[in-house]
């Protein structure tokens, strides 16, 4: 009997009043306002995503390592000005080390990305891989440049930036895949309410 009452309630539509006029505009305004504030101040709570493992430590590593690497490389570049060696590895074990570090981070990230591959996000992944390939070619060019201009800070900075760009490409791809997942779930849940 009690359940009768419950089920009667469940069958009713209690949502009878229309939304106030201009509610949509008001909402957009609120969103915009928030975005303005945030782009100015930026103290957004950091993503509390479940998968803390790589992306965030990665960003941190990236930030610190970029600064450290730059310092080290610039120092080395200064010291090695007179060196006659021709390739990165030969010139400096430090640079080689940096290169290995970035390469393995990127390789790791690439492998992770590949494990996420599905039919829907294949396009995203392919695009990311193509961008990486381009950056790799660009890196080869920079390396050639390095042979000529070992002492150039610009060249070294370009090398580091190249690595950073690659990591960024991978991070963005992961972010896009995540958003795609979320959108899919939303669609699945569309009829619940």
């Amino acid at each position: 009997m009690k359940d009768d009452m419950k089920s009667w309630f469940q069958q009713q539509d209690f949502d009878t009043t229309p939304l106030p006029n201009g509610h949509r505009e008001a909402f957009l305004e609120k969103l915009e306002e928030l975005c303005d504030e945030e782009t100015k101040v930026i103290p957004l709570p950091i993503d509390k995503d479940g998968d803390k493992d790589n992306t965030f430590s990665l960003s941190k590593i990236l930030k610190w390592s970029a600064a450290a690497t730059l310092a080290v490389l610039l120092g080395i570049a200064g010291l090695k000005m007179t060196s006659t060696d021709t390739t990165v590895t030969e010139v400096s074990p430090e640079i080689a080390q940096t290169q290995t570090f970035f390469s393995s981070t990127i390789k790791n990230e690439l492998e992770q990305l590949n494990t996420l591959r599905t039919a829907e996000n294949a396009v995203i992944i392919e695009e990311a891989l193509a961008a990486i390939e381009k950056l790799e070619l660009q890196y080869e060019e920079i390396k050639q440049d390095y042979r000529i201009n070992k002492d150039s800070k610009v060249v070294i900075a370009a090398m580091i930036e190249n690595f950073q760009n690659r990591i960024q490409v991978l991070e963005i791809a992961r972010e896009q895949i995540k958003q795609l997942e979320e959108l899919k779930l939303e669609k699945e849940n569309e009829n619940i309410i």
């Binding site: 993503d47 960024q168 991070e171 972010e175 958003q179």
Partner: peptide
Amino acid sequence: TLTETEISIYDLCEQGDRRAQMKLY
């Protein structure tokens, strides 16, 4: 390089995303 903070602002405010947000709304 985007920091993670910038990325989450990006999520919220980026134009394409705004459309998704309004759809949800």
